[in-house]
Design a protein around this nucleic acid. Structure first.
Ligand SMILES: [Mn+2]
Ligand SMILES: [Mn+2]
Ligand SMILES: [Zn+2]
Ligand SMILES: [Zn+2]
Lengths: 134, 134
DNA sequence: TAGTTGGTGCGAATAATTCGCAACTCGCTT
DNA sequence: AAGCGAGTTGCGAATTATTCGCACCAACTA
């Protein structure tokens, strides 16, 4: 596994649980800690939820996963490689649509130029009303 | 109080607690339910935290207050009239800066034109790194 | 192969928010 | 002015989400 480097370089270990959590996040796309746990338990029923939380945090520190806020509640996780779009969340039907990052380019540049603020447009969802719900 | 209309029209009552919660939100600007409760308790120690939660929800349904997500955690509330800017949240120092809504105009228009998505740019904060923390 | 130290399972502890319900009161009607 | 009914409140308990403490286990390393 190439991920070993990311981990071992920081004195961390590649445990089965950790591999399983990472694999689950990669397969699921956006997913809550609970969903990750369920996925992992399909093949390894013994895994503990707090282990999932701890590994998501560890994997995020190492840069292999990231979290995003899609709704009013908790965070969802995704593989770091996969963050190539922003999320359009409809406040009425709860639908989550995608849009390319480029669509926010002028906005991001303006924030950078005028405020020196480097934006991560996809950390928080873009909230509003989708075309179906107008 | 002009707010009576907003409430009574929907069969709701203007109780002292409700007035106090609304007044606190208006004075505090962005504030968590807990902060609203503390503010109200300065003059009315008896108010219950669940009453604050319920009234914030009610006032939001009626359109007098709104909530926004400034950080990874819970929501903050503000008076509806006051939502005239978007929030730039720094992931490193936690600072919350403001920027005018107009700075997102082309972005909002693009989402409208290309996806039919009507964006509320200030419901979620804009996340990134502030100029001090680069 | 043994030792060091990070990781895991588990149950308890926190924190944040929501509920259930009896008592209370706002606003309306006689 | 008094009465009534439905919306509200206080309170404690219940949920949910996430974090901790700790003894035991196991991944790396020499
Ligand atoms: Mn929200
Ligand atoms: Mn976050
Ligand atoms: Zn919708
Ligand atoms: Zn900063």
């Amino acid at each position: 596994m190439a991920d070993q480097h990311e981990l071992r370089d920081k004195g961390l270990r590649l445990t089965p649980q950790r591999e399983l959590v990472l694999a689950a996040v990669r397969e699921l796309g956006h997913s809550t800690p609970e969903e990750v746990a369920e996925k992992v338990r399909l093949t390894h029923p013994g895994i503990n939820l707090s282990t999932v939380y701890r590994n998501l945090e560890t994997l995020e520190n190492v840069g292999l996963v990231q979290h995003t806020h899609l709704g009013h509640g908790g965070a969802t996780y995704h593989a770091a490689e996969e963050l190539t779009h922003l999320h359009l969340v409809c406040g009425k039907c709860e639908a989550v649509g995608d849009a390319p990052l480029e669509i926010a380019a002028t906005f991001v540049n303006a924030l950078s130029d005028e405020y020196g603020f480097k934006t991560d447009v996809s950390h928080f969802a873009i909230y509003g009303t989708c075309s179906n719900c107008q």
